[in-house]
Design a protein around this nucleic acid. Sequence first.
DNA 1: GCAATTTTTGACCGGTTGGACAAAGGTTAG
DNA 2: CTAACCTTTGTCCAACCGGTCAAAAATTGC
Lengths: 207, 207
Amino acid sequence: METAARPLTRIQQEKREIILEAALDVFSANGFRGSTIDQVADAAGMSKPNLLYYFRSKEEIHATLMERLLHTWLAPLHEFDDGDDPITEIRGYIRRKLEMARDFPRESRLFANEILQGAPRIMSLLEGELKQLVDKKARIIRKWMRAGKIARTDPYHLIFAIWATTQHYADFDVQVRAVLGPDRDGEGRFEDAARFLEQLFIGSLRV
Amino acid sequence: METAARPLTRIQQEKREIILEAALDVFSANGFRGSTIDQVADAAGMSKPNLLYYFRSKEEIHATLMERLLHTWLAPLHEFDDGDDPITEIRGYIRRKLEMARDFPRESRLFANEILQGAPRIMSLLEGELKQLVDKKARIIRKWMRAGKIARTDPYHLIFAIWATTQHYADFDVQVRAVLGPDRDGEGRFEDAARFLEQLFIGSLRV
DNA sequence: GCAATTTTTGACCGGTTGGACAAAGGTTAG
DNA sequence: CTAACCTTTGTCCAACCGGTCAAAAATTGC
């Protein structure tokens, strides 16, 4: 009584979830080409052929992972919206992005890996959905500037700078830790970063 | 009549140079594990066994490349020095780092790749040479702050932010281009970035 | 021109990897 | 119990990849 287009059973959904979780671990640590199906299968607690029963290929795992990741990834920018107080809005965006770097470093690294390789699989999304979203937010920022609520500057590069500085704490984590040294290790660095970034961005935007 | 430790012939030096140049191209585009010796040999215009006559292994090519890269990479930070005018000094550092992102994007990406993978091969350098260098520069910055020449903030996170924002234009180049769109493409984006970053950092540091 | 040395190459090898497949094991509905 | 279906696994394969090796080709020193 099922439809011709196979609906996923609950077991299938659960196993696919486990595999994606394992793949996120492995891919983000070793890169796509540096990872093997066996490693993912191992991390997922199943055999390679079993894994390939749920995903037809290594590529398909990666593609599925990327698709989900991008939704999560763009969420903070979607939330960024026209509000009474631009400073509050921007501060909130920075805070959310920094929290994502802290709570989802694997996702950040996987994304960074993809972009570094030239983003072959998500180029169309970057040029389409992402560009339009950024265009929209840039218009909001420009409006604030015209209204004299924040200092005039390039909204695109402002957004790039927020991305770069926040994601740095996920993507370059080992370097940050190495430079800060063992004494300044621990999650305290994220609070220091939050204070610093707020001062950096808000300080330069205040009129 | 040569000494026991074989001195490199001119041909050997030239060929090694050609190989390293080709390897930088290939490794920075595909990552170390995503690249094959054949690809490098191809790009260098020679056969694989011939390439392996000049470098004993793929690892050795990568290690040699990394070593050279790191010297170039830390040069701007070495130049950053105690001066009369902190603003000029910081502005100059930002400009030099941004120029490196523009002129040596492959080096930047290779470095980013290494850090992303956990920096297994250069960890000791990060914890040693790099940390000490940053510590030294952080002390200079703190001195400026105590003298009331720039606003008080965390010098380490300031340096991280400069790294992140400037390298972003090399490492995330495809994303930057995609978001700016075809009309804002071209090298003009680096000048826009320079103006923006100056305003961002100098604006927030001014007392 | 000839011998020693350096450079280049074709052929090959062992290990790894992505993926196929058929058969076995398990589950569910009647 | 049994037939149909879903899940799991052992085995296998072809392609790829890093690296070796011996022999050919080119270069160099005399």
